[in-house]
Computed example of a mutant assay.
Amino acid sequence: MLDERKVKLMTRLALYEETEGKEDFKISAYYRKDYVSLHMLCAFIWVTIGYICVVAMAVLAGLDSLLGHMSMAVMVLMGGMAVVGWLAVVIIYLMIASHIYNKKHKNSRQRVKKYNHDLTRLLKMYGRNDSQDSQDLQE
């Protein structure tokens, strides 16, 4: 005879495995620090590439006025502003990315712990049924 609690629990476990579970298992395979560091490195690279593209487009858009006012002082000032702007963008973006990926890893680990707890409950349910079945056979 089917136990309704076991069926509900198995359904919930299967649904989790097919939806959030795939990503959660990948995330929880990493230590939190490693997961966050990896994604912050990727974010650093992509923010730097994006910033270079934006600065290059701005330089190309204002190339006529830049060539008209070109001097060594202006070039040094613009280069310094570009570096300071890059540092500001990178620091802000990495702080945001760190917060997001820490939270994502924490939530993923909590869901995986709940999944493991439910698996343990299911295993105990099967253990109880097996012991009852063996007692019924002995009688």
Results as ranks from 00 to 15, higher is better:
K8F: 06
L9M: 14
M10F: 02
T11D: 14
T11A: 14
T11Q: 12
R12Y: 02
L13V: 05
A14W: 01
A14D: 02
L15W: 04
E17Y: 01
E18R: 05
T19N: 13
G21N: 04
G21W: 02
K22M: 05
K22C: 02
E23I: 12
D24L: 00
D24I: 00
K26M: 13
S28M: 05
S28T: 12
S28D: 05
A29W: 06
Y30M: 10
Y30D: 13
R32H: 11
R32L: 15
K33R: 11
K33P: 00
D34K: 03
Y35H: 01
L38W: 00
H39N: 15
H39Y: 13
M40Y: 01
L41Q: 04
C42R: 12
C42Y: 03
A43R: 12
F44D: 00
I45Y: 01
W46E: 15
W46Q: 12
V47G: 01
T48Y: 07
T48N: 05
T48F: 12
T48R: 08
I49D: 08
G50M: 11
Y51I: 07
I52Y: 05
I52F: 09
C53I: 13
V54R: 15
V55I: 15
A56C: 03
M57L: 15
M57C: 10
L60I: 08
G62W: 09
S65W: 10
L66S: 14
L67V: 13
H69F: 12
H69I: 11
M70C: 06
S71Y: 05
M72R: 06
V74G: 06
M75H: 04
M75Y: 11
V76F: 10
V76C: 09
L77M: 07
L77H: 03
M78V: 02
G80E: 05
M81P: 00
A82F: 01
A82I: 14
V83A: 11
V83Y: 02
V84E: 09
V84L: 15
G85E: 06
W86A: 14
L87R: 08
V90Q: 10
I91M: 11
I91P: 03
I92K: 04
I92N: 03
Y93A: 14
Y93T: 11
L94E: 00
M95E: 08
M95Q: 07
I96E: 10
A97N: 06
A97D: 13
S98E: 09
S98F: 10
S98L: 03
I100Y: 03
I100T: 02
K103D: 13
K104E: 06
K104Q: 08
H105P: 03
K106F: 12
N107F: 07
N107W: 07
S108R: 03
R109M: 11
R109N: 07
Q110C: 04
Q110M: 10
R111H: 06
K113W: 02
K114V: 08
Y115G: 10
N116K: 13
N116M: 09
H117F: 03
D118H: 05
D118N: 13
L119C: 06
T120H: 12
L123D: 08
K124F: 12
K124W: 11
K124I: 11
M125I: 14
Y126A: 05
D130L: 15
D130N: 14
D130E: 12
S131F: 06
